[in-house]
Design a protein around this nucleic acid. Structure first.
Lengths: 211, 211, 211, 211
DNA sequence: CTATAACCGAGACGGTACGTCCCGTCTTCTC
DNA sequence: GAGAAGACGGGACGTACCGTCTCGGTTATAG
């Protein structure tokens, strides 16, 4: 998350409790105020902490919010629901549920926007959020391949590109639906999305078998 | 874009040139500074205009940037390239090209983020950007149905939902690829994306026929 | 006191009332808090003014306090009391009275201390305080010379040096008595001081004729 | 200077070297930074000492600087130069030399300013600086009385008041000349000052006998 | 052809948050 | 138990913008 030079062993150690309090206060402030009105002074006050304590640990508002939001995504899981379609629907619904939280909605797009001009921040987002959740795609695909629902992909380079593509399609669609179109990614939408993802646009025929 | 009460006819009229200068200055500042360091005072100075002149025309930074960025998307077209796949690839590439512009990258996600807590801004984005480009999906689908590449969808409600879904999938994937994964949406990626969109995840076999 | 480039005629003019309010608030804060605990934010709040309004007019705390204190000395006068001794005693008592005010005590020595490392501040003090009050020495001497109590000094260079010397002796003695020794410069002290100043250390004899 | 409760005998004793290092570092910092930019953290770093070590020995910045500066004045002496005038000129020149040191200039007036609101600090200054140097006035007067240059003062109360007055006049004039008027108290100024002090303002006639 | 009204530039205004610096205290490990 | 190290809660700093206001001045239509 953040760390000092490894050789520093002297002096009073940093409070571990402060970290948690700051991140929780950040999420609380995101809910109440949203990204643009969130101030580090306010977060510090909520966390019962001095402003300098935050600045000692994070370079600024952007990085703090990335860390605060990233924790939300760690609870994503991929329980085996028996079929690739069901697995996808399950995880997409979880993802949509998290994106419906005000603390995620407010902060996520904002840091992505900031990241367009900040390579380090982009890397932090990739490490804390994107790559950490790509495991879901890998696991789901492996499971589907074991079930025979998807063909094996022997070329590792092409395989990696496919994982990236799917992640962009899944995450992108849910994010766009939720934050840009500002419509709920509810069960019906998730079913339609999953059908198109699995079978393509042409598959507009019978829908009954999906849930 | 912005308008006064229609009954006001006396007095000095607003300078039309100022509008264009302000929007151009906004895009210029977005390129140089990015969203978060863009200040209206700076925009005013670049446009050779007083701050009050901006505030007389736009409620604030958010709305100004929406208008400045929306103009970029008006150049999107959907030339008939003979097949649905080719049409999709064409428009997605155009979209990716615009999203690669710094003035779009910086501003777009930021106003979307702001819009999560501002209904009026959300509506402005929908009107200025989203709905205005949905025409591309409608037109592409109609053309594909005429060619027999896609089945007709008689139920208008379901039809609208499909349009929305496709728009979210296309725009979402490109945005996520470009801004979150921070990888270029180049021709190869667009080909892979289009194949999955049209034929589903299972279609990982031979690829030769795509370009 | 402070001024902008003389050519600036456009824009909203600076509030004259703000100047007076700020200086009064500064003196009030000096009384209550003293120099070291006086903060410009506090002064701004007392004056009902934004911090930036102060910084627009004064470079910093030092210059503000010089101006606030300098006003106190403008009320010094030299009424003709009939003899040089009486004139001196009168003005020294006035000076001591001002130096007994908390707003003067707290601020004056502090800015002098700061001025040891700030040529511009030293100049400001000289212009606002020292030179402005040297008139008293000049006037008193002229009057005494007219009365025949002091010899004329034809050499202008030597004359100026004498004025400076007397000013340093008078002001220095009162300041040292009041602020360093922290004893009141009361009537009796003033009488003793005046006798030494006029007649030298040897004149320790009869004192009765002094008032 | 500072002391612990006499009963504390166990544990590691305080480093005596640290005291000297801290005071020297304080003077060094006064020279480089001046009073207002001097911070105890900086002094600690210069002295190779932890901040806590300073706080264990002095209550704060004010007291530390008083002690650091007071040492400078201990070198003042009053060699017998044969006449009262010569004795005064000698000691005033020494005093002026010390006040010309940056470490004295910066610090002395600042702590005097602070002392206007801090009785304990005022007492510390009086004990460490003022009273310690009053010996010079006493010694000089005794010597002059022995020579017959000054009359005896039998009343002890009046005698003490005279000592105080002279001290305020001498120290005040030099301080004012040096720090407020910001002119050097050079030999010529000292001669003029001494003549007025000994013989009064009227003695503006022939000067040849002064050096 | 003059009044009136809304516009315009400039820039001061009250205000909020910034990120930094230093304060004086505390907590830890080491000597 | 003193000492070095350094994190801690707190407060002020001086700066940057915000969105509003008050100026003097300009450019239109309406009378």
């Amino acid at each position: 998350m953040h760390s000092r030079s490894p050789a520093s062993r002297t002096g009073r150690p940093r409070s571990a409790a402060a970290d948690a309090a700051i991140l929780a206060a950040t999420r609380e402030a995101l809910v109440e105020l949203g990204w643009s009105k969130l101030s580090l002074g306010d977060v510090a006050a909520r966390a019962g902490v001095a402003k300098t304590t935050i600045y000692r640990r994070w370079p600024g508002k952007n990085e703090l919010v990335v860390d605060a939001v990233a924790e939300l995504f760690d609870e994503l899981e991929l329980p085996d629901r028996g079929s690739l379609a069901a697995d996808i629907e399950g995880v997409v619904l979880q993802f949509a549920t998290i994106l419906a939280l005000p603390e995620a909605r407010s902060g996520l797009m904002a840091v992505v926007a900031e990241a367009t001009r900040d390579e380090a921040l982009r890397e932090r987002i990739r490490a804390s959020v994107v790559d950490r959740q790509k495991r879901l795609v890998l696991e789901g695909r492996a499971r589907a391949q074991a079930r025979g629902e998807l063909p094996a992909e022997p070329d590792p380079a092409s395989s990696a590109r496919t994982v990236d593509l799917i992640f962009d399609m899944v995450a992108g669609a849910v994010v766009h639906r939720t934050l840009v179109s500002a419509e709920p990614a509810d069960e019906e939408w998730v079913r339609r999305f999953t059908r198109v993802l699995l079978h393509g646009l042409g598959s507009q025929g019978p829908q009954g078998a999906s849930t």
